[in-house]
Amino acid sequence: MGTAWSTQLGHEMDGGQMSGQELISLEEVAAGKRGVVRHLGGGPDFAARLAAMGLAVGTPVEVLQNRGHGPVLVLVRGTRIALGRGEALKIMVESLDDGR
């Protein structure tokens, strides 16, 4: 992560509880909250697809819309990506904000 945008998140990571925090799935992250992707379940095909759209391990994500049902909308590297709830469940993130 080298851009100013991600570095800024990086600083927050350094200052915050970077390690030892438990991972939660993207499906549980509320709108307006941010996190860093730490693991992708769902096999190589799924991981390759997400990577090509900008979402890989180490990528900061911001949840734009998550209403507990219906698709989740996330902002990744300046790109808005809609994810089904099943897909969001397979993306494990480290939360960058307190709580959920």
């Binding site: 080298g2 851009t3 992708l40 190589p44 890989a56 391990v57 180490g58 990528t59």
Partner: peptide
Amino acid sequence: EDAVLDIASGRYEWIARMVR
């Protein structure tokens, strides 16, 4: 088996270096 995750992250690290 998890190499795919590292390869993808590695590409983004390369990209970050290129655009820095």
